[in-house]
């Protein structure tokens, strides 16, 4: 026990590139990505500060300030973080600043707490490196909402097996001349067929399936609009049960595959319960 009000002296101030510091930072990044359900995954850019405190009875607490940068993978996208492309500054990237505490015990890192603030790069900084690059737009802007609805309508018009509903608008950019709107949004397939949807609210989302879409709406000079939509749909497929020794009955119930909204591609990532296969579904210009 220590007297109240007496701060615990730090054990040491390690290098920010110390291997343990990096492992603690990576554990914190994983924690952050697992605990926000909107927007994109972040990846570690830099460790700003590191301090280590002793923890009783055992262990050490790493108190870190870390800089994160946005990737192009949505947090619901099962793609491993290592395979996610970092969002380039020319795309008006978002950064995150986090204060985290990570406990190290028995060579295992466990995040105790994390507090993060995210903010887009300044428009001036984007302009410096790319004068004509589109800047981020508010997600609730009427032009953005219209562009997403038009892109989703175009995608659903392709008559996939299922009707897709909008789950989240995750990104939007206006071109400098305001003549086109670029959007990224998340969709979810439903139990409705595209051709007989009267009330979308009555369609129920299928579990463990999401479409990650990009759409561009361009206003034509003579009136009218061009819409382009591209979606990557991840479909959950049941995992193959591990072979059981003779005489031992599997505790798993029968695998009942839900009909995927789109045919599943080859598995690329395996988790404890499901394997996920991506399928690129491209919608040409409409």
């Amino acid at each position: 026990a220590r007297s109240p009000g007496v701060p615990v002296a730090p054990v040491r101030d390690p290098d920010c590139d110390d291997l343990d510091v990096e492992q603690a930072a990576l554990a914190a990044v994983q924690y952050v990505n697992n605990n926000h359900k909107h927007g994109y995954k972040y990846t570690l850019n830099q460790v700003d500060k590191a301090r280590v405190y002793q923890r009783r009875p055992t262990g050490e607490v790493y108190v870190l300030e870390i800089d994160l940068v946005e990737t192009c993978c949505h947090v619901l996208d099962p793609t491993p973080l290592e395979n996610c492309t970092v969002r380039q500054l020319t795309e008006h990237a978002v950064e995150g600043d986090c204060d985290v505490s990570v406990l190290k015990v028995d060579n295992q890192f466990m995040v105790l707490n994390a507090k993060c603030e995210s903010s887009p790069d300044s428009a001036e900084d984007v302009r410096k490196i790319c004068p004509n690059c589109p800047l981020l737009a508010p997600l609730n802007d009427t032009k953005v909402v219209h562009a997403v609805e038009a892109a989703l309508t175009a995608f659903n018009a392709q008559k996939h097996n299922n009707y897709f509903k909008l789950q989240e608008i995750s990104r939007a950019q206006f071109s400098p001349l305001q003549s086109s709107v670029y959007t990224e949004f998340v969709t979810v397939p439903t139990d409705c067929k595209p051709i007989d949807v009267i009330d979308p609210a009555a369609c129920n989302p299928l579990p463990n399936q999401h479409g990650f879409c990009k759409g561009t709406l361009t206003e034509k000079v003579g009136g009218g609009e061009d819409v382009v939509a591209t979606c990557t749909v991840f479909v959950a497929v049941p995992a193959v049960p591990a072979p059981q020794p003779d005489g031992i009955e599997s505790s798993l119930g029968p695998a009942v595959p839900a009909e995927p909204a789109v045919p599943a591609g080859p598995p690329v990532a395996a988790g404890p319960a499901v394997a996920l296969g991506p399928l690129l579904v491209d919608a040409p210009a409409v």
Binding site: D13, A50, D67, V69, V86, E95
Partner: peptide, 27 residues
């Protein structure tokens, strides 16, 4: 006789290397 010169003196205190390396780009 030549008086011994000053020794190397105490080692400079180690300076923690922070912030660490930038993995992607400077923000």
């Amino acid at each position: 006789p030549v008086a011994p010169g000053p020794g190397p003196g105490p080692a400079a205190p180690a300076i923690p290397l922070c912030p660490g390396r930038i993995r992607h780009f400077k923000i």
